[in-house]
C-alpha cells in the first residue's frame, strides 16, 4: 500500500513537510506526520541516551520524544515556546521529534529530486532519499521511517537489542 502511495505521489510530485535543523532544511513525507505541537513537560527516562528527551502524554498515549538537534549536533538546543515537536506516525508507532522549526509544505516533482552524492554527512546517507531543489533552496529529503527505526535512534527494541 505504501509503495502505491509512493508511486502516485512520485508521478504527481510528492508532498513534503520541511523543517530546519541548524542551517539545513530537511523534508519528510507528509503522510508520516500526525501533528505538530509545542514542546511541553517531558518525563525523562532514566539512563536513556541524551537525545531521547523522555516521554509525553499525548491524549492518553505515551509518546517518546527525540531531539534531532542533539542527535545530529545541529542547531541551538534550547526549549522555549517556539520549540516545535513533530509527531510522526511510523511503523505503527507514534514518536515525536524536536526540530528547530517547521517551515513549509512543498510539492516536489520527480525531476526536482536528485540522488544524494556520496559524502559523509551527520545524517548517514542511507537515510537520505535524495536532494530536492525548489527555487534556490536545497532540501534534504529524509526517509524518516528508516531513520527512526534504525538502531542509531535506540527507539525500537528489536533492533536495539
Amino acid at each position: 500500500m505504501q509503495t502505491n502511495e509512493g508511486t502516485t505521489a512520485a508521478s504527481e510530485g510528492r508532498e513534503l513537510l520541511t523543517f530546519t535543523l541548524g542551517s539545513e532544511e530537511y523534508g519528510i513525507d507528509i503522510l508520516k506526520v500526525q501533528e505538530i505541537r509545542g514542546y511541553d513537560a517531558v518525563t525523562t527516562i532514566a539512563n536513556a541516551p541524551d537525545f531521547i528527551k523522555g516521554v509525553i502524554n499525548l491524549r492518553g498515549i505515551i509518546v517518546p520524544i527525540v531531539d534531532l538537534r542533539i542527535k545530529f549536533h545541529l542547531g541551538k538546543v534550547e526549549y522555549d515556546q517556539f520549540t516545535v515537536v513533530i509527531i510522526l506516525n511510523i511503523a505503527h508507532r507514534v514518536v515525536g521529534i524536536v526540530v528547530d522549526g517547521v517551515s513549509d509544505v512543498i510539492t516536489l516533482a520527480a525531476d526536482q529530486l536528485k540522488p544524494a552524492p556520496e559524502f559523509s554527512s551527520t545524517l548517514g546517507t542511507q537515510y537520505i532519499t535524495g536532494l530536492g531543489t525548489i527555487d534556490d533552496r536545497m532540501i534534504i529529503v529524509v526517509d524518516i521511517e528508516r531513520l527512526m527505526t534504525s538502531s542509531d535512534m535506540e527507539l525500537v527494541e528489536a533492533i536495539a537489542a
Partner: peptide, 27 residues
C-alpha cells in the same frame, strides 16, 4: 498502567508508565 513498549521500548528498572493527574507521565 500504560505500556512503554507500544511506542518506545522496554526501559530497565521500569515496568511501565502512567499518566498523573496533572497530565504528566510518571514511570
Amino acid at each position: 498502567i500504560k505500556s512503554l513498549e507500544t511506542n518506545y521500548r522496554k526501559v530497565a528498572g521500569m515496568s511501565g508508565a502512567t499518566i498523573m493527574g496533572d497530565g504528566r507521565v510518571a514511570m
